[in-house]
């Protein structure tokens, strides 16, 4: 464990909690892409199956349980409890265009052709594009609530910090996992446009509205 990975995990946790609290407190999931939340929940479920087979550390297991439960709770709030506030007309990204290629790729490019490893690879590839329905929805509505932009900021930051963690681990431990690194790069690059808008608008107290 190094400071960048810990900061990344904290940033990820903050993002997940911000979203859950935003929906719970405002009793509304306006502007939130339920499709992205379903993708994130499947990312955690497919990646953390080893929760029951391998014990790495209390930290590792508890974070996995928190991520899985929060993401499933968020999906529940969006599609059931606050369904009336779900903006389905703008959440129209065709997720099959993500899941099918990602599913195919995880069979073709992986470290080991075993079920657990293919599921882990699927999860890594899926996570790198899981935010697309959310970003697509914001481009369709042309704006985002400020709290939602904070959620996106921490979510984007987390994998960026993981990239630094992988540089650190390569330099000090000689460890690197090309699949995770390439997917992490794609994932972080997808946020670049948002990061630019976040820094130039939201941090200056303006509302995030598109086109810029």
């Amino acid at each position: 464990m190094n400071i960048f990975r810990l900061a990344g995990d904290v940033s990820h946790l903050v993002a997940i909690i911000i979203l859950l609290l935003k929906i719970w407190k405002t009793r509304s999931c306006a502007g939130i892409s339920g499709k992205s939340q379903i993708l994130f929940a499947s990312v955690f479920v497919t990646r953390y199956l080893d929760l029951f087979t391998i014990f790495i550390s209390l930290y590792n297991s508890s974070m996995k349980i928190i991520y899985i439960s929060c993401s499933i709770a968020t999906v529940y709030l969006v599609y059931f409890k606050f369904k009336a506030t779900y903006d389905g007309n703008h959440d129209t990204f065709r997720v099959e265009f993500l899941v099918v290629p990602v599913g195919g790729l995880s069979f073709l490019v992986n470290h080991d052709f075993s079920p657990m490893e293919i599921l882990w690879t699927f999860s890594i590839y899926l996570e790198s594009v899981a935010i697309l329905p959310q970003l697509f929805m914001i481009s369709k509505t042309g704006e985002a609530e400020t709290i939602t932009t904070h959620y996106l900021f921490f979510l984007g930051l987390y994998r960026g910090l993981y990239l630094i963690n992988w540089i650190w681990r390569y330099y000090f431990e000689g460890f690197f996992d090309l699949i995770a690194i390439v997917a992490g790069l794609v994932q972080t690059v997808l946020y670049c446009d948002f990061f630019y808008l976040y820094v130039t608008k939201v941090l200056k107290g303006k509302k995030l509205s598109l086109p810029a």
Binding site: D112, M116, E117
Partner: peptide, 10 residues
């Protein structure tokens, strides 16, 4: 290879 063993990251 060793990658499948070291899934110590979240």
């Amino acid at each position: 290879d060793d990658k499948t063993a070291t899934k110590d990251e979240l």
